Computed example of a mutant assay.
Amino acid sequence: MLDKYITPIIKPLLTPVVILLHKRAITADQLTVVGFLIGLLSLPLLAFGYWYAALVTIVLNRIFDGLDGALARYSKQSSSAGGYLDITLDFLFYAAVPFGFILANPEQNAIAGALLLATFMGTGSSFLAFAIAAERFKIDRPQFKYKSFYYLNGLTEGTETIALFIAFCIWPQNFVLLATLFAIACAITIFTRIYGGYHTLKQQEAKANGALNDA
């Protein structure tokens, strides 16, 4: 929900760093992998209760995630392969954080963490499945033209998810409450994406079939 507002603010802030990285011949894919590995460190840190150390790795992961796309566009090396690598590792990172809290306190956090992971699967699948069909119909993405593939909006997007992870690390004692509330928000996102995505694709199919009949 907030991504379309936050991204235009962050992009200019990354430009000086992107220029420096480009001069040093660093590639966007390298940033993607390094950022993922840094983010993955949050899993053991969370499992052992090092909340603020985990928070640092989460924030660094998100900085790298912003830099890799910006670098790809600046160096004119944006590609479907790079977009695929980026989104795949992003979802693995998103799953690692709740899992870290489950390991930290299975008795208290397991059910809420499992619920959150289940809804993450729903938001991710509804997001990516629509992107595949949207590419087939060449549906415009006016709010996210810089992305490698179609971004279907929702109540819970990247900005909200990272805000949640930060809240987890600052108030780990409230993990169950925060995870449950966010899972409910994710469920709303899943419903709206499936409903909106289905009807959008039905309309596109009807237009395509009408164009064929006219021909």
Rank of each mutant, 00 (worst) to 15 (best):
K4N: 07
Y5L: 09
T7Y: 14
T7I: 15
P8I: 15
I9V: 15
K11S: 12
T15A: 11
V17F: 13
V18L: 10
L20H: 04
L21K: 06
H22K: 10
R24K: 12
A25D: 12
I26V: 15
T27S: 15
A28E: 01
L31Q: 07
V33G: 09
F36S: 09
G39H: 05
L41F: 06
S42C: 12
S42K: 02
V56D: 02
T57M: 00
L60A: 15
L60T: 07
D65M: 12
G66S: 08
L67V: 14
D68R: 04
G69P: 03
Y74S: 12
Y74P: 02
Y74V: 07
Y84D: 03
L92H: 07
P98F: 14
G100S: 08
I102E: 02
A104R: 00
N105D: 14
Q108A: 08
A110F: 13
A110N: 01
A114P: 01
L116S: 04
A118T: 13
A129F: 12
F130C: 01
E135C: 03
F137S: 05
F137E: 08
K138V: 08
I139Y: 05
I139H: 02
I139C: 05
P142N: 09
P142L: 13
Q143R: 12
Y146N: 06
S148I: 07
S148M: 05
F149D: 07
F149Y: 11
Y150P: 00
Y150I: 03
L152C: 09
G158Y: 03
I162Q: 00
A163V: 15
F168L: 13
N174L: 15
A179D: 09
A179H: 11
L181I: 14
F182A: 03
F182C: 05
A183N: 06
A185I: 09
A185P: 00
F191E: 05
T192F: 09
Y195E: 09
Y198A: 14
Y198N: 09
L201G: 04
L201I: 15
K202D: 08
E205W: 10
A206Q: 11
A206H: 09
A208V: 05
A208R: 09
N209L: 14
L212G: 01
D214I: 06
